[in-house]
């Protein structure tokens, strides 16, 4: 992908995201490696990581449940959905279940306003949800993990 851009560092953000998808989070080793490859300081890389909300330097669950509570979802039960997930998973915002399967995150608008309330699990969208439908979604993922 380096060839796509006139400067090396332009690949930084997508590279970080792909590395995170591989490793689960941006560990010190990953940061060192990427900084080295792109001729950046680790400070530079960390400064960029901490700017973007999808990037994290802390491990999280296999499935990151991101519940939108922004206005469109708020009006259609986003907060109730978040509360429901929290109760169901037994964790709060940015928490991870002890089995490492799920993390929960309250997120800002994910571009599903017309299909609110919506949730993203990792990159997959789940829309027009109700607490009941949400249970089904979570079950589906739990099942997937055991297969």
């Amino acid at each position: 992908m380096l060839g796509h851009y006139p400067t090396k560092r332009s690949v930084l953000v997508p590279t970080l995201l792909y590395a995170q998808d591989e490793v689960g989070y941006l560990s010190d080793e990953v940061i060192t490696e990427i900084a080295g490859r792109l001729d950046l300081t680790q400070l530079d890389v960390r400064n960029v990581i901490s700017y973007y909300s999808m990037l994290t330097t802390k491990p999280r669950g296999k499935f990151n449940v991101q519940v939108c509570t922004n206005i469109a979802c708020l009006l259609r039960g986003g907060e109730e959905l978040l509360e429901h997930c929290a109760k169901k998973l037994g964790i709060g915002h940015k928490g991870t279940t002890p089995d490492g399967l799920f993390s929960l995150e309250e997120v800002e608008c994910i571009g599903a306003c017309s299909w609110a309330p919506a949730v993203q699990v990792n990159y997959a969208f789940h829309e027009n949800l109700t607490p009941e439908k949400m249970d089904g979604v979570l079950d589906e993922y739990r099942k997937r993990a055991t297969q």
């Binding site: 922004n70 206005i71 469109a72 800002e108 608008c109 571009g111 599903a112 306003c113 017309s114 299909w115």
Partner: peptide, 9 residues
């Protein structure tokens, strides 16, 4: 990313 917007998608 503007809340309320989901058309470019």
């Amino acid at each position: 990313s503007e809340p309320g917007t989901c058309k470019d998608r």
